[in-house]
């Protein structure tokens, strides 16, 4: 019951959406939908991507789409999935959650855990722009260490966000689901491949996609992709898969960049280059990046087989 190939609209997130120019998250969604095709049901949490795409009466979505609340997208998706089963329509399409980092790692945590543990056939995708952008760049559990946000501002007594990023993929993986992966909008082919894998898994799958926000992070809108790649090249965003509980396919970085290359281009880290003691903080961030490379490399194994579908 696949929609005919030629009937498929190419861009399933239509133009005219109101994302800021150069929005990494909007591009992420564009690429997700290119990878999935039209046969998906999207449950979207409250946040930037919901707001920029759904001001009544204009919708940017060309796939069936629902937004209910901030923290319940995983539960709404569970509802769609069981309804499709109950109505004998489960061949119609795959249920996909698209949610921000706040809606995922913070307020949506409980609903996600429930969805994963119950084993719903839902692909959960978190676009990670590392803060609550919709409400004006407040810190989330996914905000990186030392990033200055509106609720974790730097100041005389603060270097910004004083906690490291929550390791959500590990938490998700602990639910024992078949497929967990991270990707980045800076690597479209990787992203496409992983989205396709994630939707082909039967049962829950989780994908967290790094999606720079030029407005909140403070960089030139042209550099969204460049910044995304730098995050990977510096080791501040790791790209990997966890297949059946095993860490595999950690993306190799041929030439590791110093973290300064990434930090110095963003307003949210600018204070580290000006404040007394900033250097030591940058060193901490470098240590974190090095640690990332080492631990992921040590744990990683190349994937042996195809993912079970």
């Amino acid at each position: 019951m696949q929609a005919k190939e030629e009937e498929r609209p190419v861009d399933l997130l239509a133009s005219g959406h109101r994302a800021c120019a150069g929005c990494g998250a909007a591009l992420t969604i564009q690429e997700i939908l290119r990878a999935t095709g039209a046969n998906v049901f999207v449950a979207n949490s409250t946040g930037c991507m919901e707001i920029i795409s759904s001001q009544y009466p204009q919708s940017a979505w060309k796939v069936p789409w629902i937004h209910s609340l901030f923290e319940n997208a995983a539960a709404v998706a569970s509802g769609i999935e069981v309804a499709l089963k109950a109505l004998g329509r489960d061949e119609e399409g795959k249920v996909v959650v698209i949610a921000g980092d706040g809606g995922t790692v913070d307020i949506g945590m409980q609903a996600i855990s429930g969805m994963l543990e119950r084993g719903h056939d839902v692909c959960y995708i978190c676009y990670d722009n590392e803060a609550y952008m919709n409400t004006g760049n407040q810190r989330s559990g996914s905000t990186p260490f030392d990033a200055s946000t509106t609720t974790s501002p730097f100041g005389k007594k603060s270097f910004g966000n004083d906690r490291p990023k929550k390791n959500m993929p590990a938490i998700v993986a602990a639910h024992g689901i078949a497929y967990v992966a991270t990707s980045s909008v800076g690597y479209p082919r990787d992203l496409t491949k992983k989205v396709q894998k994630a939707v082909s898994v039967s049962g829950p799958a989780y994908l967290q996609i790094h999606a720079p926000c030029n407005v909140g992070w403070g960089f030139d809108s042209a550099k969204t992709i460049e910044i995304a790649r730098l995050a990977v090249e510096t080791g501040l965003w790791m790209m990997y898969e966890i297949v059946d509980g095993e860490l595999v396919n950690v993306m190799k970085v041929s030439r590791q960049q110093p973290v300064e290359e990434y930090l110095k281009q963003q307003r949210r880290f600018a204070h580290l280059f000006k404040m007394p003691g900033g250097e030591a903080q940058i060193k901490l961030i470098q240590d974190y990046a090095n640690h990332n490379f080492e631990t992921y490399k040590a744990a990683s194994r190349e994937a042996t087989g195809e993912i079970q579908t």
Partner: peptide, 14 residues
């Protein structure tokens, strides 16, 4: 209810 039609954002000429 506030239910929309697909791709109607295209009327907004960004």
């Amino acid at each position: 209810a506030a239910i929309g039609k697909p791709g109607t954002s295209e009327v907004t000429e960004t």
